[in-house]
């Protein structure tokens, strides 16, 4: 790479960013963009860079890029205002760890991501299994309590936890696609 002139290297990094973005790997794409902008902060496709930064929830960088895009395309004052307004209400990124901690109580991790029906189902499944196990233990039927409720509980409880973590990813992707779609419709 060292023998390549800075301009070409910059173009190469932008292409790598595009390739990673198309492959759905936006974190790597953003890293390549950082490297490219460190060499030359003015070259490259600013709209695409903004979308990539938004996908990584890096809205300051995204706003910087989209402003530069608006400047080069000569947008009117209204578009500037609309874009600024949109960036006032950026979606918040949900954390997988929070979902996992909340899932200590079955269903809470689902509720955190707005999946109300799934959360209720998870809560109900765990409730049924725990109630059955407790009733069996109270009736001194310990084999049924351990095998008939304990084993299903590992599936309902652990399955609920991993589902909550999956939902975080789904929710984050959905929210940012919605945001990027709104941004494009403003231009």
């Amino acid at each position: 790479m060292r023998s390549i002139p800075a301009e070409e290297r910059c173009a190469l990094l932008h292409e790598k960013a595009l390739a990673n973005h198309l492959a759905g790997n936006s974190e790597s794409a953003a890293t390549y963009l950082d490297e490219a902008f460190a060499l030359d902060s003015l070259s490259g496709n600013m709209l695409l860079s903004s979308l990539i930064y938004n996908e990584c929830y890096r809205f300051n960088d995204g706003l910087r890029c989209i402003r530069r895009h608006l400047r080069t395309t000569g947008a009117d004052a209204r578009t500037y205002r609309d874009v600024a307004n949109l960036y006032e209400k950026t979606p918040r990124r949900h954390s997988e760890n929070t979902a996992l901690v909340l899932s200590i109580i079955p269903g809470l991790g689902h509720f955190y991501n707005g999946a109300w029906e799934e959360g209720a189902l998870s809560l109900a499944l765990n409730g049924i299994v725990i109630t059955f196990g407790a009733a069996q233990a109270a009736g001194k039927m310990f084999v049924s309590a351990i095998l008939g409720a304990g084993i299903p509980l590992t599936y309902t409880y652990m399955g609920g936890n991993s589902r909550a973590v999956e939902l975080v990813e789904e929710r984050n992707t959905a929210k940012i696609s919605e945001f990027n779609f709104k941004l494009i419709s403003l231009l």
């Binding site: 499944l125 399955g159 589902r163």
Partner: peptide
């Protein structure tokens, strides 16, 4: 499917 999703099956 809904039950399978909640139990990882």
């Amino acid at each position: 499917d809904a039950i399978a999703r909640q139990t990882g099956a």
